[in-house]
């Protein structure tokens, strides 16, 4: 399983995304609004998920803006801070 697939599986399981399969999530599709359709409360959960599962803290809004664009940006953000 690639790192991106692992991230997708984690999101689907932890956010209880019904009717969404990990393979349905496009790497460059927006996570919020159109795209995966997450909302601001999912964002709260996402901050905690990233910290809990990948050991990376999103310290402020600017980092959040960078990380939460898409699966691609989220994976890049995590890997830059926690290469393991």
């Amino acid at each position: 399983m690639t790192f991106k697939e692992k991230v997708k599986h984690t999101l689907v399981n932890e956010l209880n995304l019904e009717d969404v399969q990990p393979q349905d999530i496009l790497n460059d599709a927006p996570l919020f609004g159109e795209g995966l359709g997450l909302d601001s409360l999912d964002a709260v959960e996402l901050v905690v998920i990233v910290q809990k599962h990948f050991g990376v803290e999103i310290a402020n809004m600017e980092e959040g803006k960078t990380a939460f664009q898409s699966i691609n940006s989220l994976c890049t953000f995590i890997q830059e801070r926690n290469p393991q």
Partner: peptide, 14 residues
């Protein structure tokens, strides 16, 4: 601001 980026989610958690 709840109208800020993602409703201030990052700031709330932090």
């Amino acid at each position: 601001d709840p109208d800020g980026f993602l409703g201030g989610a990052v700031e709330i958690v932090q």
